[in-house]
Design a protein around this nucleic acid. Structure first.
Ligand SMILES: [Mn+2]
Ligand SMILES: [Mn+2]
Ligand SMILES: [Zn+2]
Ligand SMILES: [Zn+2]
Lengths: 141, 141
DNA sequence: TACAATGTTGTAATGATTACATATATGATT
DNA sequence: AATCATATATGTAATCATTACAACATTGTA
């Protein structure tokens, strides 16, 4: 059993060929891909893969905490195999999603809301990445 | 011109009857309603209102910073007439969305990512509100 | 009034996601 | 190996939020 399969087993997920391929893809591509990106990229090596299987598998992975979902992009859900707590920045020009650090202390509590039971924290930043800032400046000249 | 119309004008939005009604609804209902909630609640008093108008108006309001959009609920976009920086908690059981304070310092910078230009920050918490925690406990007994 | 510009409405199209029925794979038991 | 039960994968159709678009209405101005 390979590394990815063991990873799935450690999350109580039975490792099928499709599940291994999708989990492996997420671990090797920390780019926060959409369902369609995953599907289209895997299709050449898995010609029988179904879009439904990608949806099903991503749901299984999420239910067993093997990935997190990002709703930073209002058009598509994005998926992230990195389940360590971290925040995300999305560039409104190029669309890239970058990992960023979660500010210290944010995991502790919600000020004034101690009675809430918190299961998940999502911190999203939106704006312009450095490359796109430079492009905008060049266009102005 | 009433208070709501003046509010729209101050955001460079021409105040039509529909825009006033929708903006007023958002200011009087800090419940982070969905498009359909707004549409269905306004319909009795505005029988000719179109769902498209609600969509169009909400886009105009957002483009002119008269509201913010929340993607905390993956099913529907939610709208918030309170544009002061604040965070949100959504209960996975009852679906209510609560306002919470934004932790101090979070507006300052992204640690290690000073080169990014940040236009918006969204901080979402998910979990169980107090009422739903109690309900779950009662069901266990 | 005439006219142009802006805003509204209803319907149709889009596109992501889900439901569902069928097919395939897996794993245990005989 | 053959049987059987269960889990997983596939393809198609349905759902549903959102957007596109064209026709209609309103507003303001000359
Ligand atoms: Mn990430
Ligand atoms: Mn709010
Ligand atoms: Zn960029
Ligand atoms: Zn609740």
């Amino acid at each position: 059993m390979n590394r990815t399969a063991q990873h799935l087993v450690s999350h109580n997920i039975k490792p099928s060929a499709q599940r291994i391929a999708i989990m492996k893809y997420l671990m090797e591509h920390p780019t926060h891909p959409s369902v369609d990106k995953i599907y289209c990229d895997l299709l050449p090596d898995m010609p029988t893969l179904s879009r439904t299987t990608v949806y099903n598998t991503l749901r299984v992975l999420e239910e067993n905490d093997a990935l997190i979902t990002l709703n930073i992009d209002s058009k598509n859900v994005r998926y992230d195999g990195n389940v360590m707590p971290h925040a995300h920045f999305m560039c409104r020009s190029c669309g890239k999603i970058y990992d960023t650090a979660l500010p210290e202390g944010i995991l502790k509590e919600i000020p004034g809301m101690e009675t809430f039971q918190i299961d998940a924290i999502k911190l999203y930043y939106k704006g312009l990445c450095q490359e796109c800032q430079e492009k905008e400046n060049n266009n102005k000249e």
